[in-house]
Simulated scan of single mutants.
Amino acid sequence: MSFVDLRESVLDTDLCASCGACAAVCPEDLLTISPDQPVPSLAPGAAADACGTCTLCTDVCPGRDTAVPKSEQRLFGRTRNVEERWTGIVRHTYSARAADPQVKAAASAGGAATALLVSALRRGEIDAALVIGRDAERPWVPEPKLATTVDEIVECAQASYCITPNLQILKDSPFERIGVVGLACQIEAINRMRNLADPPAVARRIAFTVELGCASNTKRAGTEHLIEGRLQLPLADVTGMKYRAGEYPGDFTVWDRAGERHTLPFHELVLEFRKFKTFRCLACPDWWSGLADVSVADGDPNIFRTSREAERTEKASLLITRTDRGQALVDASAAAGDLHLTEEVFVPEESLGLQRKRHRYTSYAQRHPGQVPQPPVPGEQLERPLDDDELIESMSRAQ
């Protein structure tokens, strides 16, 4: 009775990461999950006791158990140490920029993730890329998409700050070599699939993984609040939306039926979104999973400060390689002229997004003992985690 177990241990305790992995691997199509319903439920007509002895949905779920140590043993032959708690096991660290001006212009930061996908597609290493697009009729609604052309990948280059169950789209995919961009929870789910003695077909279709640093994801109600509550624009009038449009670091931007732009500075988006989080996102133990072939984040360690102080800086991505596959992907993309790289040093203490996650996780672990996912390695502790407002202000004072 696997779904019953999933419901009791993950769904009823608000630990669902909304990754879509459970629906992706269910052999009987008993589960359904979508951007409109990001928590899995039984498909119409399905019975909770129809699972029989199948346990796949709980086997791959990262909601309560991310299984990072087991995945690291398989990938690297060891688990991370305390000093690697928030970075994971690192091979090389770069500052990266897409060489193609179109890719760089479309991206929120340096466009590294998009450049890797485009380069791999051009070289014939993948047939499709799993990215986040927009619902054609409701542009504020994210929609997972298997992009098969350069133009489709570039169109989806922008960051999305809204919960989207990406992995379900991999089920019954006609493509056999897919490059996947995802968040820590989604990459953890993929690795839980690969940890199984007989990995499901979904996992075997994935050619490589690229993960994005994530301080926390947001319910769709947060985006709708920005549009209707802050911009005073009816959803029915929205014809286009980007979370970070225009000059870096970008503004939350909505276009109406008359072609007019309505904007909010990015730093206001950060503060408003805090009202629209799930318990699982707030209690998440990872900024990166450290399990992807390549990890990417904004090259600016404090986008909030850059936005609030109206600073101007060049777009760049922080890029970390972890596996042989990831290093080969980055090297090939650079050799093809699709990615510009320079050696970089990543300082976790300077990253506002990472530190927000670090302080928040400690706070939730102290307030909800036994109810949050376990960290990838024990030992790193904060005696007094800062309140989010206090942390943001302490790290974002004008320099």
Rank of each mutant, 00 (worst) to 15 (best):
V150F: 08
G63Y: 10
S173P: 01
D300P: 00
V90S: 02
D256G: 03
P38E: 03
P348F: 09
W140T: 10
R308E: 01
V270G: 11
A47I: 00
V154R: 13
R358F: 06
L11Q: 08
V294E: 11
F266Q: 15
E344N: 11
A203H: 04
D293A: 05
N195I: 04
G111I: 11
S34R: 08
E188W: 05
G182E: 10
E83I: 01
S394C: 07
A245T: 00
V150N: 04
W287F: 13
M241P: 00
A47H: 13
E344C: 07
I132Y: 12
S295K: 09
C156S: 08
T323K: 06
E143W: 03
R97P: 02
A105L: 09
V150G: 03
Q102T: 13
E176T: 11
G326F: 10
T149H: 13
D127A: 15
S363L: 15
A105G: 08
C156T: 06
A297R: 09
E383P: 01
T79F: 02
P174V: 06
R80N: 06
Q371L: 13
Y361N: 09
R360Q: 11
L30K: 14
H262Q: 12
T79A: 03
L382A: 10
L116M: 06
H359A: 11
D14G: 03
V180L: 09
R177T: 08
S396R: 11
F346Y: 15
L170F: 07
T93N: 12
L196M: 10
L11A: 09
S333T: 01
F273L: 14
G299A: 11
E343P: 00
T32E: 14
R64G: 02
E72C: 02
Q158A: 12
D65F: 14
G259S: 10
I187D: 07
G299Q: 03
P174M: 08
T223H: 11
S41W: 01
K104T: 02
H262A: 07
Q355P: 00
A67G: 12
